[in-house]
Each structure stands twice: as C-alpha cells, then as structure tokens.
Design a binder for these strands. Structure first.
Lengths: 233, 233
DNA sequence: ATATAAATATGCTTAAAAACATACAAATGT
DNA sequence: ACATTTGTATGTTTTTAAGCATATTTATAT
C-alpha cells in the first residue's frame, strides 16, 4: 500500500466525497469526531452482528462485504473501492451489521461518528438525498444480482462477475489485466459456485481464449464474448 | 375490494404514513398535486423500463414486484401491502423502473408527484431519513434473499416463502390460513423454482401435515417445522 | 351449456452443479 | 532449508432440480 496519511481531509474534501459541500463550521465538527484506522490484507473491519458506531468511508484499498449462508458458505454481496462507504446500510436501517467486511488488500478507513453524522444530515437534506440515491442504486444492484445468481448458469455467473470486477476496479495500465487479485475461493463466493467450479470454468474460459490466467492475474482478451456469455445466462 | 374512496387523505394522514407529521400547509400542497388510481387484479401498475412520475403509495390491495430474468423467467423481488410504497427505489435512484408491478388483488394507489415530493423532502429531513430507513431495511431483505435463494434447497426456499407471506400479509381470522392467495406459478417465482417443483413441494409439505392445501388457500399447521425446514436450507 | 384455455398435479428423463477424491504448486512459518 | 498449510487443478460420482410429457381439474369465454 502506498503510505498515505490517514486524515479526515481525505474523507471529507475528496472530489467524490458527499461531504465536500459542507460549511467550514460543519467540516470542523466532522474532523473533531472522526476516527481513522488501517487494516492489513485479510483483516476484518466488522462482522455480522456487530453494532455500527459510525459511517465508514474507505480511503484506500479494497474490501469485500459478504454474508455467511447455509453451512457457513460465504456469499459476497458487494465489493467496496476507495471513497465509497462501508456498512452504511446497517447504520441507516438502525440495525446491527447483517454482513461482514474483510480487506482484500491493505486498506485505510475513516469513521464519522453516528450522532454527529445524523446531526449534519438533519441540516443538509441534499447530502441525505445523495446518500439515499447511493442506497437506491445499491438496492437495484442487489435485485439484479438476486436474479442473475439464481437464474444464470455457472458460465454466465462467472462472466458477469468478471465484468463486474472490471467495472468496479478497472484495468491495469495495459488496459487488459483486471486491477484486482482475488483468490479462486473469493471468485467463487462472488459468483455463487463452488471453488472447484470457479477454477474449472476459469480454465474453460482460458482455453477458449476469452481470458488468460497467470496466478491470480486475469487478463480479459475478448470482452464482447464475455458479455455474450453473461447475457446468455 | 371493499369500495373505499381513493382520497389523498388516506395516503397522508393514515397512522402508517410517513407524511402525517407535515404541516397543514404542506399537506395542502401534497393534496393539490396528487393523483389516484384503481387497478383490477392482474393489472399492471408499471413495467420495467417505464419512467417514474412520482411516489406511489398502495392504499388497498396486494401487489407483486418482479423482474424478468433469463428467457423471460419471472422473479418476484418484493410483495407490497397497503400503506407501503411502490417503485420508490427507481424514483430515488433517478432511474427508470428496473422491475414491474402487477396487482395480485384489486388495488388502489395514490401518487405524489415527483417534484412536489422532493420539495417537501428537502424541507423535512426527518421524513427523508425515515424513507431512507425503509430503503435500508429493504436492501437488507434483498441481500438476505440473494443468499437464501442461491443457497437453500427447494424445500428451504419454499418454506421461507411461506413464512415470508405470513409475515407480510398475516393470517385470516382462523389464525391458520394465509391471507394471500397466489397461483402456484407466483409461489414458484417468489421461491426461485419451476411451477412443477412448487406444486410438488407444496404437496410434499401437505402430506407431511406441515400445511394443508385447498385450492389457493394454504393453511399452516406446523409453523415450527416450517421454520426448521427454512433454517436447514 | 359447452368449448377453450389456464392452472394444477404427477411421473419420467436429462442436465447441471455439487460433492468427493486426489494430485500438485505456492505460500508461510519455524 | 524444510515442513506444513493453503491454494489451485482436474477427474469421477452423486445429488438436485430442471425439462418434458401427459392427465386432470378449474376458470373463462362464447
């Protein structure tokens, strides 16, 4: 991880921050009640059942959000990227976390304390509506996934996951290598299949020249075909 | 359907309405810009791709919200009941509808025009936060369902659906008959299975004395066992 | 009242994916 | 440097649920 000072500034003044429009007065309040944390790859940020203490903003790194299902089987429901929120659903639903968050890479976050947040939201309806829009988009995403994961076949689900990872994290400078390095097990948890089937189907895609595999590095050769496989089911 | 005058009063002053705390001035604005509609069983309120014009509140009846998946296969993602909102996700995400809404029974709705709604929300952050909480709960529900529908076996999925219908619509006066009458096809779309398998598995539950079937009427005899089947997967 | 269509029911076959088994490679800790 | 664990790969078997076929019952339309 590039060592970046974990600072509330990175959280509230970044171009993608929903808080950048706040008054200096309000920003001061935010900066006085925030906390910051760093995590190593594999570390837990929160787990199912924990009580949210504030709004977590991911500053650096990559995080998977997943639920434990039947027999402890993991289902990844979301992947977070820098300057996105983590665990905000539970916070706004006033519930305990219904999912766990684990870092895929070394990561840093800042946390805006719950009461301060709601005080500021009460005074700034446009920010509240903005966060509401984020949540509405995520609900649409979740509904889409429910249908994809239940109706598409293994190849379709895996193709969709690869396209999703591309959309979320983008490509390396070569414009062909996915800018995220997941274990086969995580790819499986994302795509609702067993690890064996993830490995098998990745191999199949590779031998069809749709992708190329080099350890955890995935190169996408034929994105059109991947889209067709995903559409087809 | 019991003939009830479709009136904005039923929408904004009902005990479950998020708008009941508004000032008389604001209520007046709402009532001047609302519209009301009635639908017969089977009729469409909106369909995937339509543009939302306002916030729809269901006054009477029952509505299924579903998406078309692979090969037109239907997946019910939500069931609405009186005094709940319909289609609010698309409205707040500023997207076209990603799902369709069809009445399961004769229904009536009132619609609060979009611009009026947002004007009022900007002035009433506690209502916005309230709606946000609703949406956060629904997102939690959607995530849960993603896991259930993908990981549970047919019996577990059907059991979960029956319990969900009980929680959503409750029981008839006898306290044993589900207060909703769905086709086997709709039960299948709700539970992510083929109609054949829904029929087969309902029959199995009936012969195990967990439920009793009488046409579309479903009596739940052994709710504990149903819960066990649902938990088990 | 009768024809037609739609919904329900059940058996049989096939396809898809999980489960299991085993081998091998890579990473990690001592 | 070596042992141990974890992750990747691939073949085989078994289970699950879809797909298909065909009655039978119930609604709906004429």
């Amino acid at each position: 991880m590039t060592p970046v000072a974990v600072n509330i500034e990175n959280c509230i003044n970044h171009k993608n921050s929903v808080f950048k429009s706040l008054s200096n007065e309000e920003k001061k309040i935010l900066s006085e009640t925030h906390s910051a944390h760093t995590y190593k790859k594999g570390e837990l940020i929160f787990k199912e059942g924990d009580k949210p203490t504030g709004l977590i903003s991911l500053l650096e790194g990559k995080v998977k959000i997943f639920k434990e299902g039947v027999g402890g089987r993991e289902q990844i429901i979301r992947m977070a990227k820098p300057h996105g929120f983590i665990g905000y659903r539970a916070l706004f639903a006033d519930e305990n976390y219904a999912a766990s968050a684990v870092c895929i890479e070394d990561s840093s976050v800042c946390v805006i304390e719950k009461n301060t947040l709601f005080k500021i939201l009460k005074e700034n309806s446009s920010i509240t509506l903005h966060i509401m829009k984020l949540m509405a988009s995520e609900l649409g995403f979740s509904n889409n996934r429910t249908v994809s994961l239940t109706q598409k076949h293994i190849r379709g689900r895996l193709a969709e996951s690869l396209l999703f990872l591309k959309d979320t994290y983008g490509m390396e400078e070569d414009n062909i290598t996915l800018k995220i390095y997941l274990s086969r097990e995580d790819i499986a948890s994302l795509s609702n299949m067993t690890t064996s089937n993830a490995i098998r189907t990745l191999s199949a895609f590779a031998s069809e020249k749709v992708i190329a595999l080099d350890g955890r590095k995935i190169k996408i050769y034929d994105i059109k075909k991947l889209e067709r496989i995903s559409e087809l089911g």
